[in-house]
Amino acid sequence: MKRLTAGRWLLIISSMTALLLVAVALCALIGPTPLNLKEALASDPSNPNAKILFGIRLPRILLAGLIGGALAGAGVVFQAILRNPLADPYVLGVSSGAALGAAVGILMNVQHSLFGFNAMTVCAFIGALATIFFVYSIAQSYGRVLTHSLLLTGVIINYVFAALIMLITAIVDFTKARDIIFWLMGNLNKIEYNYFTILTAAAYICIGSAVLLLRSRDLNLLSLGEAAAGQLGVEVEKLKKIAFLATSLVTAGAVAEAGPIGFVGLIIPHAMRMLFGPDHRLLFPAAFLGGGIFLILSDTIARVGIGGSEIPVGVVTALIGGPLFIFLLRRQIRKTG
């Protein structure tokens, strides 16, 4: 793998950004209904074509890009601090907490929206925050966060919460059970898109990701092991704490808004590592952009759907991401012998 130079960083990041913009523009033209672009771009905003393009497709694509980026970026950081290739944004229980929050919200018929975010998003976000706090307070002792305790606590939380969600699903009537099941599948099909909430989510996710990007040099050193990183001058405990909190908060925001969309946070970090090498200064932003592109493309397929019905985007991410990942893995194996 080549050494990381400023030129190479700039080249890769700018071409990925260009690719992202192309994906946004291209996918805005694709959808389940034919779009008259001329009418859509004419100045009349009440035209149905304009509404479809600017009121429905574009905000959904932006949301997909944002959430894909957040999940892939979070995956990179979790894989680094847990030093585990199987880690993804959901491994520490954030998504289960969000799901439990949403399920309780559906159970109790919560209808209140907050700052334009709908009731389910608010319940899920509260559930995720409570879980982050809980996992963190269990795994830390005397100011240290033990990585394996963090991982084990997260895994156990996932099991316990999954059981509670099943319990709720089993006792509620089936319209509510259906709501819970569809929340758990994750989807970006909303009845109303609101640019204010998308911008708020964007600001939230970008601040969290910026914090992580600034720490990417330290994450490189952490991959040598905690002891070695400490000897090289990294404040390991502080780094882990900041990285854990920022990543969890970013994940919480993404999951609350779109449900636990699977696979993006696991395979995009690996795919980007195979393409561009393990240096987090490049890997983290590349994964953010790559995750965005990947989820935008996947969601476009989900939007077009089959036979007049949308399909869950999580199905698409797994069915496209799986083979793509195996292809990259084979290529990597052949290259390195």
Binding site: T33, P48, G308, S309, E310, I311
Partner: peptide
């Protein structure tokens, strides 16, 4: 408006509602 769907209860994208009016 969804009388031509393959599924009994299709999941409709909101843009389909706008275009099928």
């Amino acid at each position: 408006i969804a009388g031509d769907s393959l599924m009994k209860y299709p999941q409709l994208g909101i843009e389909e509602v706008v275009s099928r009016a």
